[in-house]
Design a protein around this nucleic acid. Structure first.
Length: 510
RNA sequence: GGCCCAUUCGUCUAUCGGUUAGGACGCAAGAUUUUCAUUCUUGAAAGAGCAGUUCGACUCUGCUAUGGGCUGCCA
């Protein structure tokens, strides 16, 4: 029996989604698409205290920018709507109570303050507090209290939670698609809270299992930080009697900081000088975090870079578009150890995409940049310029710096370049060049190359001599692209004006 | 502290018992070029340590070390 592949990306709207989260979403998406399955976006907002305004929209906009398309979600709807856990509140209590009735869970009336005090007390003695079989019958739980007393407490408004009754000394055997077989003894685990009366909301564990079951999720692909709670999740599926349809699990290795220790965190971005978020994010507090999009990354490059961080195709191919990723992806080839994020590699990926980018698209960007500087040129000209400068750029932001000389005639001549290229014959050769250029009617790259090339060949002028001197006259610095291309863009008048200016400014004899 | 996961060049990684341990980023040198860049060539650069299994171990096992995660009425 082949089960339909259905995966979900289930972020919490507690702030901007960082690139580790984007990668998790991407792997889920690739897996689903490859298997002809569905990709679901579920918002896990069961912690009312950590909710951040705008985070949900941010998540959806990020996925959209990345080219990750959602099949079912809060915006798209779907057969299992709603997809926001806060809107599914009433579903969870029923399941929590079912567990209490079947003896897999119990009520606990300890207040957070009491528990903190208990923890602190034991810590002072050098011991660690674990809410499990060893204490649950001594504390204020339905395991110790009588049924009447439990009802009484509930009736008088005492806050309560429902905790999972973790079995004592049982080895849970689990399978992970990436890590293989994993075993854990339940005695080291604690009785996790599943449901809290304070806000009538479940915790992650309950909501997650219930929703994955209800939404018929076939594969859970998530971060490694969830591995320690996998036994709990296995046990929950068993307690509910859902083992038959329990999804398969794959725990992804974490993304680590480029330098230093620890996993990549939200605060690393500005500190290390690279974005950790796909998009710029303005927190309600006003704090601004930079994003890949705003930093000039192409979504395709960003996705390509992220896909290769922790996964590899087993071949030497490194450049993949989304379709190729879908085709090549496999969970078996996801690495087991944490991957350190590398800003250098991210730059390289973007440069690769920049070099092969469509000129039309880049021209749009370029024209807009010029417009901001009050410069207007024909689209056809922008196309030609962009074709040249994209080979030299990593980000669109570099366009102006790579082409500003086209709009600003030199006001001075670089000293070093002058010394190096304005040699004895230069004034005479440039003078001759001027005459040649004046005779060219059609000032195009092809025509310039034909006429000037013939003149250079006929007079056996060293290529380096003429070109470098020419460049000095036109640009004033050792910058720019091909001389014929540059002069064609500048046009005959401007080219001659600059040449004349240079001839009258630079020494005529040496 | 306890539990779990991991460990190949500086970084991302290939290798699924027998290889001169391969590729990419970055770095260095050189070549090409008309500046810059691109491109190309070359170079430096790795199996954490110690035992064991085996004819043979980067690959399997154990221990140690190191790194990471979890240990919340957070996800």
């Amino acid at each position: 029996m082949e089960r339909k592949v259905r995966v979900r990306f289930a972020p919490s709207p507690t702030g901007a989604l960082h690139i580790g989260g984007v990668r998790t979403a991407l792997y889920n998406y690739l897996f689903a698409r490859q298997r002809g399955g569905d990709f679901i976006l579920r918002i896990e907002d069961t912690d009312s205290t950590r909710y951040v305004e705008g985070a949900e929209e941010y998540i959806m906009e990020s996925l959209e920018w990345c080219g990750i398309k959602i099949d079912e979600g809060v915006r798209e709807g779907g057969p299992h709507a709603p997809y926001r856990q806060s809107e599914r509140k009433e579903i969870y209590l029923k399941y929590a109570l079912q567990l209490v009735e079947s003896g897999h869970a119990y009520y606990a009336f300890d207040t957070p303050e009491e528990l903190n005090a208990l923890r602190a007390e034991l810590e002072a003695k050098g011991e660690t507090f674990c809410y499990n079989y060893s204490v649950r019958e001594q504390l204020a739980t339905s395991l110790r209290l009588s049924a009447e007393e439990v009802e009484e407490r509930k009736a008088r408004g005492d806050q309560w939670v429902i905790r999972f009754k973790m079995p004592e000394n049982e080895v849970v055997k689990m399978d992970d698609l990436i890590r293989g077989h994993v075993e854990m003894n339940t005695s080291t685990l604690d009785d996790k809270v599943l449901y809290k009366s304070a806000d009538a909301l479940p915790t992650y564990h309950l909501a997650n299992i219930v929703d994955d079951h209800l939404m018929e999720i076939s594969h859970v692909i998530r971060g490694e930080e969830w591995l320690p709670s996998l036994p709990l999740h296995y046990l929950l599926y068993r307690a509910f009697g859902w083992e038959e349809s329990r999804p398969e699990f794959a725990h992804l290795p974490l993304l680590l900081k480029p330098t230093g220790q620890g996993k990549l965190s939200k605060r690393d971005g500005d500190k290390l000088g690279f974005p950790v978020f796909p998009l710029k994010f303005v927190a309600p507090s006003g704090e601004v975090s930079r994003g890949y999009r705003e930093d000039g990354y192409f979504p395709e490059a960003f996705i390509n870079m992220l896909a290769l961080l922790g996964w590899n195709p087993g071949t030497e191919q490194e450049i993949f578009n989304m379709d190729e990723l879908i085709e090549a992806f496999s969970l078996e080839r996801v690495g087991k150890s944490g991957a350190r994020f590398s800003p250098d590699k991210a730059h390289w990926f973007n440069a690769q995409y920049m070099h092969t980018r469509d000129n039309e698209e880049l021209a749009d960007i370029y024209l807009a940049q010029l417009n901001e500087r009050g410069i207007t040129i024909e689209r056809e000209k922008a196309l030609r310029i962009v074709a040249q400068i994209k080979m030299r750029a990593t980000f669109p932001e570099e366009f102006w710096g790579l082409s500003s000389f086209l709009f600003e005639a030199p006001t001075a001549y670089d000293e070093k370049a002058t010394k190096k290229y304005w040699k004895a014959d230069a004034p005479r050769i440039m003078g001759e060049l001027k005459t040649i250029l004046e005779g060219i009617e059609e000032f195009t790259t092809e025509e310039l190359e034909k006429v000037c090339g013939a003149w250079i060949a006929a007079n056996e002028i060293p290529m380096g001599l003429v070109m470098n001197a020419w460049r000095l006259c036109i640009v004033g610095e050792p910058k720019g692209f091909g001389m014929y291309d540059m002069c064609a863009v500048l046009g005959k008048d401007e080219t001659l004006t600059r040449l004349n200016a240079a001839l009258s400014t630079l020494p005529s004899t040496l």
